[in-house]
Design a protein around this nucleic acid. Structure first.
Lengths: 241, 241
DNA sequence: TAAACAAATTGATACGGTCCAATTGTCTAA
DNA sequence: TTAGACAATTGGACCGTATCAATTTGTTTA
């Protein structure tokens, strides 16, 4: 994984950018980089185009390749790079202690919507996992997830009380894609109780469908977040590449 | 623009997918496509990789390329493709009538945060444009935008009462990238008045920094949305390409 | 019949070449 | 002095090839 040429170039450039090796905010041209690294120009292009998609650099034909000044100026807002899909891991990386309290754990027939989202048939069953997520012992999110039993037939109460994504990895299944939808709503009585919210305080809603590597939809998840913990950052590019 | 080979292939494949030309959810292999379209395999790969990033298809080495079942089953949630950055255009595409009411229009010195976001120096001035956005005559969003005067020296009250992005296009400046941050908050008294909200109803906050094609940060915008209108959808992939 | 192996299929990586398009700087002519 | 022509630089598009790796399929073997 770490030996791919374009990834090496990508990583090295990222590193050099962080080291402020290009104070004039301008990278060497592609042909020079190709020669300097001893790789083909195609590989350099590939590395650069990934960095551009991540918002680190901007390419301008006829002029050169430049570092996004914002990326250097305010690194905190740019935490997007290498973003994590799983909640547990995202938290850990912040150096805080994540916690999980299992609220309920059932097997139920999939309703119409879930059938559609998870590509199931009439009569298929799913786990319904309702969990309260904690952050340094403070509850911040109510999560209701649905997972087809035929994809993970061995889910136990113990497994589900920990990170499901970590469990999956141990089964050689990797979640690398997801479709997310973000909304806001007034809090319900249950929200207020579980998340310690005042009546005027809202919840953020994140609904996600998570996919395995091969495109199989694996889980639909409905997350109700304490509003102060919802902060979704993303770099949007309309280049369609 | 429309004559690029990989875009033609991409568009044609997208079209054929919509026409349900691949009922077995499987696309022809890359080599066949290359031959059928009379283009190189590289171009086919490029087209396919864009479609994969958009979540339309999944590629599986050694097996083939498959259509994301969700993409066909529920097209409404997948409106992401070809997403629009500008508010006005996004609305129009929905077949509804967008409206703008100018609340205030001033030139003010950029504060520290704006200086940082827009890469300005101490003492630089920016337009401060506060507008109420309407949707079929119903207010749904309060937008406060800041634009450096040195980038758009000729902004007039009339210009600003219409779509700024459309104005930019007429000046041959294109906005293709943005950095967005999404949050939720209880509504303030002003929110409640302008957006017709009850006290318990929240607002969605979208903050965005918009970039011109060459990477120049062009505008910071703070958008307070009626919570029922905040619905941000996105396809997330951890492949880093 | 089932397991092991071999071959064909299919996408991934990487190279290097050709030509094009946008930008910038320079030189020239009015 | 300035406007326009020209050349050099730099990224973009596209092609074709070679090789590798994962998966599936077919065949052989125990």
């Amino acid at each position: 994984m770490a030996d791919l040429v374009y990834r090496q170039v990508m990583r090295d450039l990222k590193h050099r950018i962080h080291q402020n090796e290009f104070p004039n905010k301008r990278l060497p041209d592609e042909r020079s980089l190709s020669e300097a690294y001893g790789v083909s120009r195609s590989s350099v292009k590939r590395a650069l185009s990934i960095l551009a998609n991540q918002g680190l650099i901007f390419k301008k034909r006829g002029s050169g390749t430049f570092i996004n000044p914002l990326y250097m100026k305010n690194q905190t807002i740019f935490q997007y790079e290498g973003s994590n899909l799983g909640i547990t891991d995202s938290m850990k990386s912040g150096g805080k202690t994540p916690g999980i309290r299992l609220l309920s754990f059932n097997v139920v027939p999939a309703n119409k919507e879930i059938q559609q989202d998870l590509f199931l048939d009439e009569g298929d069953f799913v786990y319904e996992i309702k969990r309260l997520r904690l952050f340094d012992d403070k509850p911040f999110m109510i999560e209701t997830g649905y997972i087809p039993i035929k994809i993970a037939p061995n889910l136990s109460q113990a497994t589900v009380s920990d990170s499901i994504f970590n469990y999956l990895e141990s089964q050689d299944k990797v979640v690398t894609k997801s479709f997310m939808s973000i909304q806001a709503q007034p809090s319900t009585a249950e929200d207020q109780e579980l998340l310690h919210l005042k009546p005027v305080e809202p919840v953020g809603i994140m609904e996600g469908i998570f996919f395995l590597d091969d495109g199989t939809p694996f889980e639909v998840s409905n997350m109700r977040l304490h509003y102060q913990y919802l902060n979704y950052n993303t770099f949007v590019s309309l280049d369609e590449e």
